[in-house]
Design a binder for these strands. Structure first.
Lengths: 339, 339
DNA sequence: CTGAAAGCGCTAACAG
DNA sequence: CTGTTAGCGCTTTCAG
């Protein structure tokens, strides 16, 4: 029966070396003679010793823990991103502590405080907004943070998003090219920069073509609210095309259109989404959408965060990754549309 | 500008008390005079002090970190469970460190070792199998573990699942009552107890009715493999009903049946799933399925784990939670079927 | 390269 | 109730 909890001291005793020798053997950047390493490894294995990373963190000041704050997981984009994020960080020798937070700013703030208590080396805030005082706090404490899939006005804050304005434009151009004239928009949560940017790009492109938004509803990024907004929007003078702020809602909009209102897609109405989550490609939906390149967004997020951890003086980066329009069958395809 | 990292010592100095007094004020079970508490709180606020929970963990031996090991997040059941798990634990004052692991046992093992390095107070293994040596290791180290949505033969291992055998039976009874005669089954990953139990219950109930399985395919819990299995199964002498080991695959099966094979559901073939994830209720699928009560499963999991943490002598619990059949439209409804 | 010694930030007896 | 004194398990100078 192995001991309850083996310390470096016990290993040292068995190996006949000092405790600090043991420490060195298990510290990446340290040096020890081949013989010592051998003896220590041997003793460690025999005892089943593994360093206590918490104690290490206390003295070294590096916990190698990354705090991840995330709001909702029912939008498929997040589980996907979360999985990649965790894997990538794991590969780089970091570990993820996860915190759920609703979008209420106060909640996010208190949650980040708890996170700081764990001496996290960095924070990834996925799709949540946080107060500037809280951000300020992270900065003075010296914990870097990057916003994932959300941006804030503060230019000192690093963030990674897709190019939402450009994405919104692409949606408009596609609908316009398809000959649509009555174009509606179903918005996400108004507090989100992603929502605002997508809409801004969309409306701007419409305007440049001399078309004004035919109808607007708010779905708040919530499926049921998107359904209600759809019902309202189609009650009278319905649009012939709808751009929905994300796929999660777009799916709900399609269901409502087809199964509650008996409309054909895209014969009666075209639907466009944003994200390209897995379900968008399922034949039952076959949703035309703007892809958010989750893998690249994750890679970039991790890059920014780790380089800031390794070099606190690094300048903040605000990355916007361009995502392509994925043409499927939920929206009329303009004649001669080139891939 | 607040200091970089404030220690209890600095607070003590400012408040004019000893360092241990500060500790006491911030330790739940400790006592201090009203005056001391007041002074300390005041000084702490002024300095922006918060206790370093890592240091606390080192000395107290309690990290209040729970390690969560999870394999895949693309099956919607897991994000849902993960969200609840995290929230519940958060409310109870614990925090979740998340580890992704593929189903390869070696991978799971190494990941659990890393987890142990963080001195986690407990482990939740969601849908992964781990070697008995690793489990043994957790036990000697004194870290309780509970299996979520998976069980193992070892009776000393706590686990929480739905009643998969009963669920399998319910599926069979419903199909039988619907008058189906050629009944197929699409299996999940054979290494999973959930898969085995669902199939066992299903086949047993069929057998008792004198019906034998018409066809069997393996989908491995992976959507694409379920599609291929479906194609194979329907190539010749197709069944008139299929029970699929989980919703994730059932969705894929439905897509294949309708869009690749041009079959009507349930007119040509009935489909039954297992889990009742969110998408099952979407009108585009409207999948009849056995519900896994995620909320109750999570509550039970947390209960078992925390009681084992608080009282290490607690006996292991193996809970199987009964889940109802949710009748929707993907399978023929037997005449006079009562809810 | 190696051991001794100091110390990370905090909790937990222990006297007073 | 409070301050003093030991540590927790580990990293990191500092001599040798």
């Amino acid at each position: 029966m192995a001991a309850q909890k083996v310390t470096s001291m016990e290993v040292a005793r068995l190996a006949g070396v000092s405790q600090s020798a043991v420490s060195r053997v298990f510290t990446p950047g340290a040096s020890a003679s081949k013989k010592t390493i051998e003896k220590v490894r041997q003793a460690a294995k025999q005892l089943g010793y593994r360093p206590n990373v918490l104690a290490r963190a206390v003295v070294s000041g590096k916990s190698r823990i990354i705090g991840l704050v995330v709001a909702y997981l029912n939008n498929q984009f997040y589980p996907e991103a979360l999985e990649r994020l965790t894997n990538t960080l794991q590969e780089r020798g970091y570990h993820v502590m996860i915190f759920m937070a609703s979008n209420q700013a106060e909640n996010v703030d208190s949650v980040v405080e708890e996170l700081l208590d764990f001496q996290v080396d960095g924070i990834i805030a996925a799709s949540v907004a946080l107060s500037s005082t809280l951000y300020e706090r992270c900065r003075t404490v010296g914990v870097p943070m990057v916003l994932f899939n959300r941006a804030q006005d503060d230019l000192t804050m690093s963030s990674v998003t897709s190019d939402n304005v450009a994405g919104g434009r692409k949606a408009a151009e596609f609908l316009l090219a398809g000959g649509h004239e009555k174009i509606g928009y179903i918005a996400g949560w108004e507090g989100a920069s992603t929502q605002r940017d997508r809409e801004a790009g969309f409306v701007a492109a419409l305007q440049e073509a001399g078309v004004k938004l035919h109808a607007r509803g708010a779905g708040n990024f919530i499926a049921e609210q998107a359904r209600e907004a759809t019902l309202r929007m189609f009650a009278s003078d319905p649009p012939d095309a709808v751009f929905v702020a994300n796929d999660h809602m777009a799916i709900s909009v399609m269901d409502t259109l087809r199964f509650e209102l008996g409309l054909q897609i895209p014969a009666d109405v075209s639907v466009l989404g944003y994200d390209d989550v897995a379900v968008a490609s399922w034949p039952a939906y076959n949703l035309t959408t703007i892809r958010q390149p989750a893998n690249r967004m994750v890679a970039e997020t991790v890059d920014i965060l780790l380089s800031k951890i390794e070099n606190p003086a690094a300048a903040p980066r605000r990355t916007e990754i361009d995502g392509p329009l994925i043409v499927r069958g939920s929206a009329r395809i303009p004649e001669g549309w080139k891939t």
